[in-house]
Amino acid sequence: MSEDMKEMVLEYVREEYVDEDDEDTELDYDTPLISGGLVDSFSMVSLKVFLEKKYHIQIPDAKATPEAFDSVNKIVALVKEYQD
């Protein structure tokens, strides 16, 4: 389940933030997304909305910090916190 979620989030991040012709960006579960400059804090909003819709959860704005969204692993941990 956790592996599925990781893969799903990774795929979303790749689709949403990496350009098709970008051969330089290497992406894994621990790649720093925000501090690494791949996801800016502005487009982080769409990532939050995606997670909330996909997993039927509500992440409070105060918890949706750049630190909490900084890697796929951290995102999955955050999502799990708000699942039943």
Binding site: D40, F42, S43, V45, V49
Partner: peptide, 26 residues
């Protein structure tokens, strides 16, 4: 729905607005 490379002032303006926010790759 904003291009990801718009100017910082636009990002600030969008944050002040209650509309939904989204963005597209540059």
């Amino acid at each position: 729905i904003a291009d990801r490379l718009v100017h910082a002032s636009i990002i600030d303006g969008i944050r002040l607005c209650s509309a939904h926010q989204d963005s597209f790759k540059h």
